[in-house]
Design a binder for these strands. Structure first.
Length: 230
DNA sequence: CTCCAGATTG
DNA sequence: CAATCTGGAG
């Protein structure tokens, strides 16, 4: 949930989510529709699909236990190096090296105060050197909280990171339509393409492109003109 | 308008 | 490498 989404927004949804799906088994057995509905408001809906898939993998291949290996975690959908490593650090309190936006800000502030463009590869060795291997969880929490605090005073720090990229406009974009389409399908259970065109006031051509994309990613199924949640 | 405890794809 | 995914707070 925390991938590219503000903590303040996640914290409210999270409690609701774990109440509804308290363990991997519940999540693996739940319908995709229920999972996506519980996810509403968080954005990046593909993460909801991934999380359910991960629950199924853990139930079927790992006897219901979350692996503590970065290499294995990285084979799960939507889990890259940073998320895999943070799971190892936070869930298991085992040493791992990773960077996220708040950690990045701390190291840019302290070690690259003048440099114009900073690559994560330059930061990683410093993360490794500074890590408290006796209690990585506590160290990373502190580091990230410090980064949050720094942002208030220096909101521009991460713009000097090579990873920084200005986000394209959301309003009027295909992304916005995509979100609206999924929300409508979730609220109506089934929907006709003609109804979507009327509600969203967009061309059939554009809608088709988005629907095919949603189908390909496993959100919906299309039978003739009828759309349902996968 | 901006960005967010990023990952994946072309 | 760049583009794409999402929606709401500030």
């Amino acid at each position: 949930m925390l991938q590219q989404t503000q903590t303040s927004r996640v914290s409210e949804k999270f409690l609701n989510f774990v109440k509804k799906f308290p363990h991997f088994e519940a999540l693996s057995k739940a319908s995709l529709e229920d999972v996506l509905k519980a996810w509403q408001g968080l954005g990046y809906n593909r993460r909801a699909i991934a999380l359910k898939k991960i629950a199924e993998i853990i139930i079927n291949e790992f006897e219901g236990n979350l692996p503590d290996s970065i290499g294995i975690l990285k084979t799960f959908p939507q889990i890259g190096h940073n998320t895999a490593s943070s799971i190892v650090a936070f869930a298991f309190n085992k040493p791992s090296i990773f960077i996220e936006t708040n950690i990045r800000r701390v190291f840019i502030y302290f070690f690259f105060s003048k440099k114009e463009v900073i690559d994560d590869k330059e930061i990683l060795p410093l993360v490794e050197k500074s890590l408290d291997t006796s209690n990585p969880r506590k160290w990373y929490y502190a580091l990230m909280d410090y980064g949050v605090m720094l942002k208030k005073k220096f909101p521009e720090l991460n713009k000097r990171s090579r990873t920084y990229r200005k986000q394209s406009q959301f309003k009027g974009s295909d992304r916005e339509i995509r979100g609206k389409v999924l929300k409508l399908v979730l609220n109506h259970k089934t929907l006709l393409i003609s109804e979507l065109i009327e509600k969203l006031k967009i061309s059939r051509n554009k809608l088709n492109k988005i629907l095919i994309q949603l189908q390909k990613e496993g959100f919906i199924k299309i039978n003739d003109d009828l759309i349902t949640v996968e």
